[in-house]
Design a protein around this nucleic acid. Structure first.
Lengths: 218, 218
DNA sequence: TAGATTGTTAATCGATTAACAATC
DNA sequence: TAGATTGTTAATCGATTAACAATC
């Protein structure tokens, strides 16, 4: 079976971002089903696992191709392969961690990134006491080495774990060096030019919206 | 100025959840402006800081009351107070961390929760080597103590940092004990009954949606 | 008062869901 | 072939934005 090609996608209606954010969840559930030995599932069954409507699954998938068979459903293995390919999850992505404080160290030692093809290959910090040290097998380099590090290791993704007041500057530097995907752990929403993606990990915001429901009897 | 009362809200159209999730961001920006000595701002100016349209700010706020003055704008201090009150951020919230592994320890030592009124007052784990130890001044208790701990410390919020395969069971226990707000760090979407709020912190999903744009030239 | 900006209603936009012809 | 389920179009729903009368 042929993979849907980028050339094909160009001719197709732009995919809404919200659809893209659901695809990784589809991948997760498909992996789980595959691990359980399930071979085929229809949109109804997938919807139950994902807590979404069958129509939404079919619509979401239709942005990328025709992966199902009428009367049968979807072959799990094939669909999983297709979605991983679409998301670029069959590729290896080199990641730099910027900021090797308490949080940065926790991220460097977090085992959850590696199985999904994200390889932390560089760490940067401005603290002279940290520079040169190895953390989880990665040598800490000074911030001024950023351009070289990005080029040398082909860094495509940065994880930023520096104090809020430095975050915007660090991200400006990263963008300048050609990094176009940034996972930010500081409690701010950094500004970036079009074409650069930022995702914020902000547990305090999550807590603060939940207290609304606690305080108002949700 | 009177606070909008919960009795009033009951009569009013239900607030969309997406609006509630924006309020904490409004609070953050208002705090920043207040710290800079700004006294008054109109929806245009607030919108620039928040990267949203002035119309959206006015609409969002209108779900909760009339906080502005025509011809002038919003008094920062007053609006901040109002929003904090609406979100329950003037209250103290007691938090339990469940799972004191590497991630749980990092959360216990993360200083970002405390300034916002979230107090981690309990930690639970099933590892006999951890039980009885103190981590960041909090004694680790066995999971079987959960009901007592929740009651004793008036726990309203739980942060769950246990391995994925235990997460659903742990969350079931928490719900059973009356906890209605859960911040989950495991890479799954747990099922909870209506009236219980879960927020998932899932950096891998964020990375996996960014690779889509990297792989497809976004 | 005149000018500015809110609060709110109506228009628009976009995403989700329903329905069904196409087809495996 | 008959039955089932997709892929897609049309209908619905909800959220965002525009516009403006109310009013500070």
């Amino acid at each position: 079976m042929a993979h849907s090609s980028p050339e094909h996608w160009d001719q197709v209606a732009t995919v809404p971002e919200v659809v893209v954010t659901r695809l990784p969840q589809y991948v997760r559930v498909l992996k789980e089903l595959a691990a359980q030995g399930v071979q085929v599932a229809n949109s109804q069954q997938l919807g139950e696992h994902l807590q979404v409507t069958p129509a939404q699954i079919r619509k979401d998938l239709s942005y990328f191709g025709r992966f199902g068979k009428q009367g049968r459903g979807y072959h799990i293995g094939t669909l999983l392969e297709e979605l991983q390919h679409i998301l670029g999850l069959n590729e290896q992505w080199n990641v730099a961690v910027v900021g090797v404080g308490r949080l940065g160290k926790a991220i460097l030692s977090y085992p959850g990134f590696t199985p999904d093809g994200f390889h932390i290959v560089a760490a940067l910090d401005n603290n002279p006491e940290l520079i040169g040290q190895e953390v989880e097998g990665v040598a800490v380099r000074p911030m001024e080495d950023l351009p070289g590090v990005v080029q040398q290791h082909n860094i495509q993704i940065a994880v930023v774990a520096v104090p809020s007041r430095f975050t915007q500057t660090v991200i400006d530097n990263l963008v300048e060096c050609g990094v176009r995907a940034i996972l930010n752990y500081a409690p701010i929403s950094p500004q970036v030019p079009t074409g650069v993606n930022v995702r914020n990990i902000d547990p305090v915001l999550s807590l603060q919206s939940m207290t609304y429901f606690l305080a108002n009897g949700g």
